[in-house]
Simulated scan of single mutants.
Amino acid sequence: MRKKTNSDRRSAVITGVLLIAGIVAGIFSVVPVIDGEDYMIKAYTQENQVLIGAFFQLLMVIAYVGIPSLMYPILSKHSKGLALGSVAFGIMAGVFIMIGVMILLLLLTISHEFAKAGALDMSHFQTLGELLQAGRDLVNHVATTLAFAAAMLLFNCLFYRTMLVPRWMSAWGLIGSALSLAASLLFMLRFIGLDAAYMMLNFPIAFQQLVLAVWLIVKGFNVNLPRPDEVGTR
């Protein structure tokens, strides 16, 4: 039987808070002006929206890196390889997020320069802006999502094996992570865009993270359940 400790309870609560913080930060990191067709002109005039989006995107790093790192001491007792893998993918996701922030700020800089240049030699601004916009989409919706979905896949795999949370929730997380990975790969291969199909494929893991967060904050880990390797000895 697992023994309940204050450390486990604290880790569960902090993990739940970080999951919710990551979701909220992700929502506020959306920058409609950059995703619009007239981003070259409008980004300069709506600079605060871009900077706020960049700020919340940076906050996502805390959640993406913090969740697997915080859980490592607990999960490594059951599988150091999977636990370490989740941390590695979480760090990768954090790095990609920071790259995405830098690209976002570069787009803002180009918008400033575009406004100064006026009608003179606009073509190279447009070309550079389009390249950066495409690069930002690939970083945010392919690289970052693939890394974090892989981290969550390992995370939920360990949860399923250890029964620290109900297995139905872990199974939901495994399926949701797989769908999120598929969404990023399909977007990368241009089978889908940033459309309803992409959002629907990512919705299950996002909703599972919210449910998991509430569960961890309210109930914590199922520390009184026997380990899978203990069930057969009874």
Rank of each mutant, 00 (worst) to 15 (best):
A43R: 01
G129L: 07
L58V: 10
I91G: 09
L75E: 11
L51Y: 11
A171M: 12
I103E: 04
M163F: 10
V65E: 03
A206R: 04
R2W: 02
K42W: 04
T233H: 15
I91F: 09
R2M: 06
L75K: 03
V17C: 11
L189A: 14
E230F: 05
L131A: 13
M188T: 03
L153M: 11
I27A: 15
S177V: 11
L19P: 08
V30Y: 14
G22S: 06
F114K: 02
G53L: 02
R234A: 05
T162D: 02
L225I: 04
G173S: 07
N224W: 02
A115L: 10
I34H: 06
L153F: 15
I14D: 02
L194C: 09
T145F: 06
L158D: 01
A134V: 06
S86T: 06
P73L: 02
V13P: 00
F28S: 05
A88D: 01
V211R: 00
A93F: 03
Y72W: 11
L84K: 13
T233E: 14
A115D: 15
L158Y: 01
K4T: 12
F125P: 05
A150D: 07
L212K: 00
R136G: 08
L105K: 04
S7K: 10
S29Q: 08
M199A: 14
P166M: 11
K80T: 09
L189R: 08
I41W: 12
I175Y: 01
G22W: 05
M60R: 14
Q208P: 01
E230K: 11
A149I: 04
V211G: 07
V95W: 11
L105S: 08
V223C: 13
F191Q: 15
R234F: 06
Q46E: 12
M188L: 15
I23L: 13
I74W: 00
L19A: 14
S7A: 14
G85A: 07
A63M: 10
V231G: 00
G100A: 03
A21H: 13
A12S: 14
S123A: 15
A88E: 01
A54M: 07
M200V: 13
Q209A: 05
K4I: 06
A43P: 07
G66P: 06
N202L: 08
A206Y: 00
V17P: 08
S170N: 04
K77V: 09
V65G: 00
L154A: 10
Y44F: 15
I175S: 03
P73T: 04
T127P: 01
N224R: 14
N48L: 12
V24Y: 02
W172H: 05
N222P: 08
M1V: 09
M92V: 10
V30K: 11
K4G: 02
N6R: 08
I52V: 15
A63S: 15
F221V: 03
M102W: 12
G100N: 00
L201C: 07
V142Y: 04
L186P: 06
Q46F: 13
Q126S: 14
D121E: 13
G94D: 10
M200I: 14
M1L: 11
R161M: 10
I205C: 01
C157Y: 15
Q133C: 05
Q49N: 12
G232C: 01
M152V: 07
L153S: 09
D137V: 09
L225A: 09
L120Q: 11
G118W: 05
Q133E: 10
V139H: 06
L108V: 05
V218P: 04
T45K: 06
A213E: 02
V218S: 09
M60P: 01
T109K: 14
A213W: 05
F96M: 09
E47H: 03
A134N: 12
